[in-house]
Nucleic acid binder design. Structure first.
Lengths: 149, 149
DNA sequence: CTTTCTGCAAAAGGTTTGCAGTTAG
DNA sequence: CTAACTGCAAACCTTTTGCAGAAAG
């Protein structure tokens, strides 16, 4: 956790971004929670600590964080979660084996898993984590034959 | 394509739903296009054929279609695509091996593929379809250990 | 100091809801 | 006929944009 924050701050600095109060606090909450948060939730968390920040600012902060590989957006939830230490260290931006999430339909808690075979994976997941996979979303982004040319 | 429409109409009937003009035409366009459409696009297509329908109606229609397994929502695009004949026949609701989509970042065209191993799959995809996979989105929905109890 | 960030106001989408009127079966 | 469906208006929620003022380095 401390690790994440330090690495993140370095990455920000390297990119020439300033370490402002909202950015720093957003990093802290993302690290502490270790669960995906909405921009509004982050705004509220800041407010609880006496730092009022506009949601617009949080949106812009998260946009930068995502670009720098500090957070992922969990598409199905519209929430942002901090990248794992592993992802940060290996700088495995969009690699296979990263950012696979298990989203509980009931409590909305998210756990990260890594692995590569979907079929086997589901079985392994159920055995190792006790998570009962009901549905999965798999979509590929890229360039089709025509557009590649 | 004709197949899809007939099967879909049967499924609607079996569920006690009425075969109205907007529903029937939406089915036709989804079948004909074979590409994911937004509710607004469907509304416009209907309008072009002289049938004006409200977007709200289209939203409600698509909601029903999804419930009945006639269409899938392509999460990343916010669009709806007709289920494949295979899916309809096997009634493979949420099964592994279904609804995997390749989304072109440039032309936004979508192709469906089936297969189960993600790693191998990407390689196979590139060879078979010429689609260059840049990124994939994989998220699982289900119940975590706690919530399962 | 000067560039970068933030706050505020406002707009822009996308989606949902309630209710009265219309239509399929 | 009568339950189901649709249209309209409005609300709601999330996200984006522009610009002037504030703050980091």
């Amino acid at each position: 956790m401390k690790n994440f924050i330090q690495m993140a701050e370095n990455i920000l600095r390297e990119d020439g971004l300033r370490l402002t109060k909202p950015r720093s606090m957003a990093l802290n909450f993302l690290a502490k929670e270790n669960q995906p948060l909405t921009p509004y939730e982050i705004r509220d968390l800041l407010k609880e600590e006496g730092e009022k920040a506009d949601v617009v600012t949080i949106y812009r902060i998260l946009e930068e964080f995502e670009r720098l590989g500090l957070v992922h957006k969990v598409t199905l939830l519209g929430r942002y979660i901090r990248c794992s230490d592993l992802e940060m260290e290996t700088h495995c931006e969009k690699d296979i084996g990263c950012h696979h999430y298990l989203i509980c339909e009931k409590c909305s808690k998210v756990q990260e898993i890594s692995g590569e075979n979907l079929h086997d994976l589901e079985r392994v997941i159920e055995k190792k984590t006790g998570f009962e996979v009901k549905n999965h979303f798999l979509e590929f982004l890229g360039l089709c034959k025509k557009c590649k040319k």
